[in-house]
């Protein structure tokens, strides 16, 4: 996936939500996106995944190349991402591969693998409507993985999860990258980005203002805030081990 001088505005908006963004996302990598509310992180995901302007309307200028049509997207709110047509988790997860018309056995195999990846096999026979937000979000991610996407974009995918569930989800992303998927994940959670992403894009006012490894571009994890407030010179350590390594004893 590559963008060159991409600018995008939603229909009826006076100012573009994405401004002159150029970047390339490689297969087999996890790229993080972070920024304040309204900075354009969600819009970047929609444009990078090819969903805007195709489904949202609006106008895109600049160049965009997406080298795959197998693209998955996950939002923070699981209930908007259910088909509403399935009464079991298995049927929900199988919906995607089934819509590609793949043989029954292959659909069920993809479905089983995705349920295992997210650790929700035990929910396979439950009604999605009876699940908690956290369980549902894992089912939603499994539903998208069952499509075996080559480009996966996730918008704050752990907002509904408890810490253990969020850790498990973020630990899965590098594993997906190892299998060849290009992963693009937006979240305000810089702690988890610092641990998961090889590269982080920081956005402000629709532009990508910083782009590089987490240690070079992030400065607002709690540990970084502690270090800054305690007089540590930049670049600030992002996690506990890095901070301890910077202290002269």
């Amino acid at each position: 996936m590559a963008l060159d001088a991409a600018t995008f505005a939603y229909p009826g908006a006076r100012t573009p939500a994405l401004l002159d963004v150029s970047l390339a996302i490689e297969a087999g990598t996890v790229t993080g996106v972070t920024g304040a509310v309204g900075a354009g992180t969600s819009t970047l995901l929609l444009v990078a995944g090819g969903f805007a302007p195709r489904l949202t309307g609006g106008a895109l200028s600049g160049r965009r190349d997406i080298a795959t049509n197998r693209i998955g997207i996950v939002f923070a709110t699981p209930w908007t991402q259910l088909t509403g047509l399935a009464t079991t988790v298995r049927a929900e997860v199988a919906f995607g591969p089934a819509s590609l018309g793949r043989p029954r056995g292959s659909v069920l195999a993809a479905c089983g693998a995705a349920l295992r990846d997210l650790g929700v096999e035990h929910l396979a026979d439950r009604d999605p409507a009876s699940l908690s937000g956290g369980e549902l979000q894992r089912v939603v991610v499994a539903s998208v993985l069952a499509m075996e996407p080559e480009l996966l974009v996730l918008d704050d995918p752990a907002a509904e999860l408890d810490p253990a569930g969020a850790d498990a989800l973020y630990a899965l992303l590098p594993e997906l990258a190892r299998r060849g998927t290009a992963v693009l994940v937006a979240t305000p959670d810089s702690e988890r980005l610092a641990r998961t992403a090889e590269r982080v894009l920081v956005m402000e006012g629709g532009r990508v203002t910083r782009d590089g490894p987490p240690a070079a571009v992030l400065d607002d994890t709690d540990v970084a805030r502690i270090a800054r407030a305690a007089g540590c010179p930049a670049p600030y350590p992002l996690d506990v081990a890095a901070l301890v390594a910077r202290v002269v004893r």
Binding site: F51, F75, T77, P97, A98, L100, G101, R104
Partner: peptide, 24 residues
Amino acid sequence: AEVDEQALALDVRGGTARGRRTAL
């Protein structure tokens, strides 16, 4: 406010794909 996300999610899951779906 959620219609956009719903349409996107369905699109990603092949809701708009042509061709015959597999009945499980």
